[in-house]
Amino acid sequence: MKLVDQVVQTFRVAKLFRDNNERVNNIDFSPSGDLLLTSSDDDQIVIYDCEKGTSKRTLNSKKYGVDLIHFTHGKNSAIYASTKIDDTIRYLSLHDNKFIRYFHGHTKRVGTLSMSPIDDTFISGSADKTLRLWDLRSPNCQGTMHAGGRPVAAFDPEGLIFAAGINSETVKLYDLRSFFKGPFSTFELNQEKECDWTGLKFSPDGKTILVSTNGSVIRLVDAFAGTPLKTFTGHMNNKGIPLEASFSPDSQFVFSGSTDGHVHVWNAEKGYKVATLNGDHTGPVQCIQFNPKYMMLASACSHMSFWLPALDQ
């Protein structure tokens, strides 16, 4: 089954989960697509089985809080940012709920985390205006970049370069093997007037970069030249919250949540709105991602929804 406009328009909520009583702040599919991991403001981590459509396990992080949770390469461990006590990043074994390692260094809240798609490297960015490079195998920071502003960052699909968005106006590209030399490319974009950049992602084909904001615009820029390609609007964000925007695995569609509880979908190349999907979300849909392997979408407010296409249409 190919993802085309008509298929996207048939997506319906197949399963709704009410495991959390507060906002789900991050979701992440395992690389194999069979598990989904969520972190929530109620300090819970929930693991979902995507094939069975069930919630598999709930872990608590009451002492430190939990945000920005990400699978590492296996399905059995994750990294996440703390929301209480300190700004340490924690490396957790999901198998036995024990911490494997702590990554100390940031002095303010961590706002961006990205795991390399190919190895044990990850990057973090914080309100302390630094980007830090880490290796899962060592508690020591592998490198620090002073961003001069609050950064958002992400690896490209090959894991060879990463992009950092600074001050909601500049995108810098770094080569992982020589990042200490500084960025090899810098794009200046028009500074956002009414919102800040809150997320940055490469398309799965590596050709474009999606910039999400805490306003009602999402920007798409060329990953090589930095030229602005598209601006996606029409979704609602009247609460100034960081709404996630995500690509479909074929890079053809862009999905975003909305504060009115709907999911909005655009054609990435041409920019037009493909669908506005109603999933009966009771609050703002902050998290949205497409499964990397299965024809399945996940979205979350304080509830978690699995969406599937209606095959009978």
Rank of each mutant, 00 (worst) to 15 (best):
T121G: 00
R177C: 00
L131Q: 11
Y294Q: 14
M145Y: 12
G226K: 03
D96S: 11
S32N: 15
S77G: 13
S251K: 13
F103Q: 06
S61V: 12
E158T: 15
S116W: 11
F232N: 05
S32L: 10
H281W: 06
R219I: 03
K172Q: 12
F17H: 09
A245F: 02
H262N: 14
Q44A: 10
V7D: 02
Y102R: 14
Q252L: 11
D87A: 08
K2F: 01
P117R: 13
D43Y: 10
D86C: 11
D96N: 15
S212W: 01
L189V: 04
C195R: 11
Q286N: 01
G149S: 13
S246N: 08
N76E: 15
R177S: 06
E269W: 02
T38S: 15
G125I: 11
R12V: 15
K207G: 00
Y80T: 06
V263W: 07
Y272V: 04
V285P: 06
D5E: 15
D86T: 05
P284L: 00
P151A: 04
F202L: 05
P139Q: 04
P284R: 01
M304Y: 15
G65Q: 08
I89H: 10
R90Q: 12
Q6I: 05
F180Q: 12
S116H: 10
T130E: 13
A310V: 09
A78I: 09
I27Q: 01
L200P: 00
T276M: 10
R101V: 07
A14C: 01
I166T: 02
T112L: 01
G226Q: 06
K84H: 13
L160H: 12
D205A: 12
A310H: 14
D196C: 03
P292G: 10
N267E: 14
G182L: 03
N20P: 07
G257M: 06
F253P: 12
A164R: 07
C50I: 14
G149H: 02
T233C: 13
G261V: 08
P284S: 09
G149Y: 00
N267R: 13
H106P: 09
G283P: 01
D222C: 05
G65C: 05
S40W: 04
G65R: 04
